[in-house]
Simulated scan of single mutants.
Amino acid sequence: VEPSLWLPWALSPCRWNGRYYAVPWVVDTRVLFLNTSLLEAAGASQPQTFEELLRAASAVHERTGAAGFGATGADNHRLYKKILPFMWTLGGDVLDSAGRCVLASEANVRALELYAALSRTGIIDTQKQLDAAFVRGDVAFWPSGSWLIEKIERENPALQYAAVPMPGRDRSAPGISFAGGEYWAIAQKCTNPALARAFIRYMTAPGQVIAFCRRIAEAGFPARRDCFTDSSLVSNPIKRVFAEQLRTARMTPVHPRWLDIEQILENAVVDVLYGRSDAPGALVQAQMKVQALLGR
């Protein structure tokens, strides 16, 4: 692996104990989709900060009766992708640099309180149902992925919508969004590692990975620094927003117990969304559970 070739944050899942075990291939992120017709009807503008987002979502709900914001609720392996951008943007995190759980931080409490406040302006549901609600024109603001572009074109091409980077803490910079990716690795028991390496070099070469992403819209963008903003991939103005958001995107911590940590975080968010706990209490309990899980 030549680290300088790749987007820096895309390398984290490849590395363990100082060694590289995989090669990044494609990456993608989430942006904020917005229904411009509902914003116009409510007299609201495109938000650049979380506070502006809350005001705009509230205005849509109060003045039009439509849902201001789509909040993912109990939806395993998806909810964490929605709450982490709020936490990261406001200065929070799941683990600190020493691997200690910091879920109960003041920044994370503010983020969860904000997410819960946004949920009260709209709908709490699964990602699949909220994608469908946005396509129908029932939701003003909804953070989602690039697959939604094709769904809108197929099911409701008349929908008046736009996409913008995730709102920031203030207007000085866009927010941080969740990023995911696909990787190539060679199994330890591979009987022809030389051929496997040649195949990976072929699949990650600029021409091949650009052609793949151009053909498969949901594939996202090449993880290579010299390819992810290729003009053929950003001719669609909505896709261009995704490329822009990738500059301020992050991946989840690389940890062998991540799936367990993820579940604890998601359960805490659900408890707050459905009124079973407040944000400080839910995150203190979540932090204690993660600490017990990690033995620290």
Rank of each mutant, 00 (worst) to 15 (best):
I176L: 06
F141Q: 05
A163Q: 05
I176S: 10
S172R: 15
K189W: 13
R169G: 07
D170M: 12
G175E: 11
D138H: 15
P143F: 02
S146Q: 09
E150F: 05
A185H: 12
E182W: 14
I152P: 01
R136D: 12
G181P: 13
M166D: 06
T191L: 04
W184M: 06
I152V: 14
R169T: 07
P165I: 05
A140F: 05
F141D: 04
Q188Y: 10
P165C: 14
A173S: 14
A140I: 11
F178R: 08
G145D: 03
Q188K: 04
V164S: 07
C190F: 04
G180H: 13
R136K: 15
G145L: 01
N192T: 11
V135L: 08
P193R: 08
A185L: 15
C190Q: 05
A179F: 01
Y183N: 14
S144T: 01
F178L: 02
P174C: 14
G175I: 11
A179H: 00
A185D: 12
A179T: 07
Y161R: 11
G181D: 07
P167Y: 00
Q160N: 02
A158R: 14
W147H: 13
S144H: 03
A140S: 10
I176C: 06
V139H: 05
D170Y: 12
S144P: 00
C190M: 11
W184Q: 03
E150V: 13
T191C: 04
E155C: 06
S177P: 03
Q188E: 09
I149D: 00
W147P: 00
G180E: 02
V135N: 02
E153W: 05
S144R: 00
F141N: 06
K151I: 13
I186R: 07
K189I: 14
Q188A: 14
D170F: 12
A163I: 12
P157A: 08
G168R: 10
A163V: 06
P174T: 06
G137Q: 06
A194P: 08
S144A: 13
P193D: 11
L159R: 07
F178E: 04
V164R: 08
G175K: 12
I186A: 03
R136A: 10
V139P: 07
D138E: 13
S177D: 03
G180M: 09
R136F: 13
V139N: 04
S146V: 04
G137P: 01
S144F: 00
W184N: 02
A140D: 08
W184F: 11
E182R: 06
A179Q: 02
E150T: 05
E150L: 09
W142S: 02
A185Y: 08
Y161H: 12
A173E: 12
E155D: 08
F134P: 01
T191G: 04
S144K: 00
S177H: 06
M166C: 10
P165T: 10
S146W: 01
V164Y: 03
A194T: 12
A185V: 15
W142Q: 04
W147F: 04
G137I: 08
E153G: 06
R136C: 14
S172V: 15
P157K: 13
